[in-house]
Computed example of a mutant assay.
Amino acid sequence: MTVERDGSLTLRVPPRCDPVRAERFVAGSEVWLADKVRRREEHPPAHPVRAFREGESFFYLGREYRLLVDDLADHEAKASPGTVKLVAGRLVLSENLAKDPRTARRAVIGWYRRTGLRWAASRLQPWAARLGVPEPAVRVRDVGNRWGTYRQSTSDPGTMALHWAIFQLPSHLVDYVIAHELAHIKLSGHGPGYWKLLRTAMPECEERRAELDDLGRRLWLGDVVDGKP
């Protein structure tokens, strides 16, 4: 059972689970759910809004990069629309792209997806080895109210999808999300057996989970100044 970032509740059960048993499980989790609701009320989401102005802060793997709006990059953007780069400690966006917040949003999110995918691919093997699971295919995209998902397959190790926004977090928290999803290859749900498995690969997983809950509520999720997605 998972309380999603929007406050909704997701309960995953085996295919032939008795509905009555599932209802009893939810009813028996009343204290746990009340604690989750209390924490959310005490620490509401505070996701920032971006305007893509010179000097604005963006984060990649926990490090802050100031935005550089550079008209000299326009020729490169015309040749390769959506071009965003890290150059000398600055996140460089062409002036042409920065003029429209929605266009800039697509370009920057595209950059997070590309660079995040390369980074995640390099981290998959070590965590899969620790958990004793095969390496699934990896995608980086918007996965809604979750930081990651894992989808099983009968013909291959399945597919892991990671939210592009997690690559703003420090690397050890991205590792946590990756390990968290890899553990689902062996065990679905978040019962005691699941957490025991995850702790074998990442003994500090509870601490990292709490840190993710705290930092995650302050990540940029794509909101821009004109209020349009």
Rank of each mutant, 00 (worst) to 15 (best):
T149C: 11
K78F: 12
R90D: 03
H75M: 06
G82S: 03
L91Q: 04
Q152H: 13
G148E: 05
A77H: 07
T103G: 08
V108F: 09
P157A: 02
D70E: 13
F167A: 05
V138Y: 06
T83D: 00
A104R: 02
H75L: 12
L117I: 01
E76V: 15
Q168C: 10
P101R: 07
G110I: 00
D156E: 10
R141E: 06
T103C: 07
E181P: 09
A73E: 14
D74F: 02
V87L: 14
L169E: 07
A98H: 04
F167L: 09
E95R: 15
L187E: 10
V138Q: 01
S155M: 03
A79C: 02
P170Q: 10
V108S: 07
A73Q: 13
L72W: 02
G148V: 07
R130Q: 14
H172Y: 14
V87D: 11
Q125W: 11
K186E: 13
A121L: 15
A121N: 11
A129N: 11
L162E: 03
A183L: 10
I185R: 13
I166F: 01
E95H: 08
R130W: 05
S153H: 13
K78E: 14
H172S: 12
A165K: 07
A79K: 14
W119H: 14
G110K: 01
A179V: 08
G148H: 07
N145D: 13
P81D: 00
G148F: 08
K78P: 00
N96C: 03
Q152T: 12
